[in-house]
Amino acid sequence: MLAMKRLYTVLFMIITCLSQTTGQDNRIVFSPHWLPQAQFAGFYVALDQGFYAEKGLDVEIIHPSATVNALTFLEQGKADIISLFLVTGLEAARNGLDIVNIAQFSQHSAIMFVSKKESGIESIEDFQGKKLGIWMSGFQEVPEALMAERNIQPQWVPIMSTVNMFLLGGIDIMTVMWYNEYNQIFLSGINHDELNSFFLSDYGYNIPEDGMYTLRQNLEERPEELRAFAEATVQGWAYATANREYAVELVVDLMRKANIPSNKAHQRWMLGKVLEMQQPRDKEVYPTQLHPDDFRHTISIIERVRNTRFPLGYDQFFKPVIPFTEYQPQP
């Protein structure tokens, strides 16, 4: 238990160190919105392969913890660029943070509910009154919107980091990411066919997720560095797509170094699903583009859940650093 406390201290020290070096023109500190894992493979690969360095960037990647999130880093100037869920980004903007989306990687929602078949929960209507676990780290708006829309009142149980509560039956339903916790549950011995899955995308909530954010001020001051960073990241994702085993090994190695439990089986699954989420599929969208419809759709959800108006327009919120006209399709 002390370990946790120590970890945070260590992280804080790292962050402090890093923050001293920010502000130099070629220096970029990036924080993904979660601990190292294949969800962010593109960034690690770009760093490891020197794609950032090729663009003349000196990139440092830092990580939030279960209790300190990436948004805080950005707010405090400890990171120049962070990744966030779209909903989290929009919420931050709504709450007054002058934040802009500079590249949208994920195009689809990976959020889903799972229940054990043995619990008899067969549809989301059955969620009424049941204990529903939800992550505390800031994307609860979408599941909440869905429940509100359907007038279902589950017993929300905030969960910090593990699926143990669900495995032990402490909660009936768990909100999970298809690329992550869904597979963690599988890797804890529960077979796919023992679970009922409810993809939010199947209920009209196919909301894009991971995107790249910075403060508007940063964008105005250093547009070229940010663009270079975004382009190198795209390159990193492309390389990870073409060299999955390498990317998986790289991620697992990083996790080991950070003393985070890791294994290839899980990271391989995660990389596959994350890359899948980046595909346009039925959406007419350029890579790294936030589609206006997705923007409007997400705002409408937030407005409904928060019962307020979103203050920014699409063009004010989405400031792509890679112009679509110059976009070079990757093989």
Partner: peptide
């Protein structure tokens, strides 16, 4: 504290709920 929100840690939350 806000940085050590033990209410949602497994060692606390799971026996608490169960």
């Amino acid at each position: 504290g806000d940085n050590y929100n033990y209410f949602y840690m497994d060692w606390y939350q799971i026996p608490a709920i169960m």
